[in-house]
Amino acid sequence: MQERPFSDISYEQFLNEERLMGSRCTQCNALYVPPRPICVECHRGDMSWEEMTGKGKLSAFTCIAIGPSFMIAEGYHRKNPYCSGVVELEEGARVDARIEGVDPKNPETIKIGLPLSVKFLHRKEDESLKTYLAFRPS
């Protein structure tokens, strides 16, 4: 694991393996999810991999009626919207993710601060496995 570069490609490989991974600066302790190769806080430290527990809470969200083509292909449309959000992990970093298990047709029922747990959505795309990061209420 230590061999993998701190890159988006590694991040996605880990997601395929159902692991939510970030990088932590060995100098200033800053945490980055997805991982960064350069610490933008102190510009000095080396990075080390760290696995997230996958627990967090909702810090912002939207319920999308008109989505991009890959979401339309999954069956989402004006009458069947989906929720995307930013999740604050218990380790402190934030990630963009799909939010499942909420009611996007009634967005007023979705509350910021909602406790969430990670869920990995595996999709076969062009013969390769792609994993989307999602969360659902804990």
């Binding site: 912002a60 969200f61 939207t62 319920c63 999308i64 008109i66 989505g67 991009p68 979401m71 989906y82 995307s84 959000g85 930013v86 963009d96 993710a97 799909r98 989307y132 990061l133």
Partner: peptide, 12 residues
Amino acid sequence: RAGFTFPGVFGA
């Protein structure tokens, strides 16, 4: 990748 569109980001 999380499904955000332009209006979606501003919605959030």
